[in-house]
Amino acid sequence: MKTSAAKTEYLALLAELDRRRRTNLLAAYRPYARQAEFHAAGAQNRERLFMAGNQLGKTRAGGAEWAMHLTGRYPSWWQGKVFDTAVRLWAAGVTGEGTRDNPQRVLVGPPQQQAAWGTGMIPADAILQTTMGRGAPAALDSVVVRWGGGGDVQADESVLSFKSFEKGREKWQGETLHGVWFDEEPPLDIYSEGLTRTNATGGITIVTFTPLLGMSDVVLLFLSAEEVGGMSQNLGSLAPVKRGRGGREADGEGAW
């Protein structure tokens, strides 16, 4: 009898530990070297690019950083940009479906499984409210996120909104933001409009994508003349590139 009760208690404990792990992925996030380099560059650079091949953690890195800014939960190892107040952020993809299936999925959880929302990078206990969009099925328009509230930090609310490039530049006007995340390469006019939204706050833009459009206008923003010249010889070693307000800078051999 005691053995059966102990087993039941043990299984319940394992289930609770698994639930806590699944609903707080941010706590377990540990970047590999290139991701850490990308994050750290935010301390000095308003504009950053993480360009690499498929399935190399670009969107995961963007999602983890956005979750930190939205919640104010920065780990002890963090060396990047820090906001000391609740934030208004955008996350965007090419289409509504692309935004839903990439940034939204990484940040909130599986789009079509609402019961699993809270298993993305934004911890479940920080998601206060979700608002559905009117475009793609299961796509969110916005998420209200609990910011701070630990120790002496007064709790506040951040707002995350989801956008897409296909709506055109006009849909990107008007807002004042702390950050814009482009998960895929945007057209130059969309990128410029997103950057403008962050000017008043001294905010940031991050771009994460696999290069499919060749030497596009947005890619050229982040490259020096020397890098452009050597680009064709280094396709196998893509790396994060960071661009500051007053100049451009690239890390690592073969960086684009």
Score class of each variant (00 low, 15 high):
residue 5 A to Y: 11
residue 6 A to W: 10
residue 7 K to C: 02
residue 8 T to G: 09
residue 9 E to F: 15
residue 12 A to N: 11
residue 13 L to D: 01
residue 17 L to H: 09
residue 24 N to L: 07
residue 26 L to W: 03
residue 28 A to H: 15
residue 29 Y to W: 15
residue 30 R to Q: 10
residue 32 Y to G: 02
residue 33 A to H: 11
residue 33 A to I: 02
residue 36 A to V: 07
residue 36 A to K: 05
residue 37 E to W: 03
residue 37 E to P: 05
residue 38 F to L: 06
residue 38 F to K: 08
residue 39 H to T: 10
residue 41 A to C: 02
residue 41 A to H: 04
residue 44 Q to E: 12
residue 45 N to W: 04
residue 45 N to M: 15
residue 48 R to A: 11
residue 48 R to K: 15
residue 50 F to Y: 15
residue 52 A to M: 10
residue 54 N to G: 08
residue 56 L to A: 05
residue 61 A to Y: 11
residue 65 E to Q: 12
residue 66 W to K: 01
residue 67 A to Y: 08
residue 71 T to L: 00
residue 72 G to M: 11
residue 73 R to Q: 10
residue 73 R to T: 04
residue 74 Y to A: 03
residue 77 W to G: 06
residue 80 G to A: 05
residue 80 G to C: 02
residue 80 G to N: 00
residue 80 G to F: 00
residue 81 K to C: 04
residue 81 K to V: 03
residue 81 K to L: 10
residue 82 V to H: 10
residue 83 F to K: 07
residue 84 D to H: 14
residue 86 A to V: 07
residue 88 R to S: 00
residue 89 L to N: 00
residue 91 A to P: 05
residue 92 A to I: 08
residue 94 V to E: 06
residue 96 G to M: 09
residue 98 G to P: 08
residue 102 N to W: 05
residue 104 Q to F: 06
residue 106 V to R: 13
residue 106 V to M: 11
residue 110 P to L: 12
residue 117 W to S: 02
residue 120 G to Y: 03
residue 123 P to W: 07
residue 124 A to L: 13
residue 128 L to V: 15
residue 129 Q to L: 13
residue 132 M to I: 14
residue 135 G to W: 15
residue 136 A to L: 07
residue 136 A to H: 14
residue 140 L to T: 03
residue 142 S to H: 09
residue 145 V to R: 07
residue 146 R to D: 03
residue 148 G to I: 09
residue 151 G to F: 12
residue 160 L to H: 00
residue 163 K to S: 04
residue 164 S to D: 14
residue 166 E to T: 08
residue 168 G to W: 06
residue 169 R to Q: 14
residue 171 K to W: 10
residue 171 K to V: 00
residue 177 L to D: 01
residue 178 H to L: 07
residue 182 F to D: 02
residue 183 D to K: 13
residue 184 E to Y: 02
residue 187 P to H: 09
residue 187 P to K: 12
residue 188 L to H: 02
residue 189 D to I: 07
residue 191 Y to E: 13
residue 192 S to H: 14
residue 192 S to A: 15
residue 195 L to T: 07
residue 197 R to T: 05
residue 199 N to A: 03
residue 201 T to R: 07
residue 205 T to R: 06
residue 207 V to N: 04
residue 212 L to V: 09
residue 213 L to K: 14
residue 213 L to T: 13
residue 215 M to D: 14
residue 220 L to K: 13
residue 221 L to F: 10
residue 223 L to T: 05
residue 224 S to W: 07
residue 225 A to V: 13
residue 230 G to T: 08
residue 232 S to T: 06
residue 232 S to R: 13
residue 234 N to Q: 02
residue 241 V to R: 09
residue 243 R to I: 04
residue 245 R to N: 01
residue 250 A to E: 00
residue 252 G to M: 09
residue 253 E to H: 14
residue 255 A to R: 10
residue 255 A to H: 11
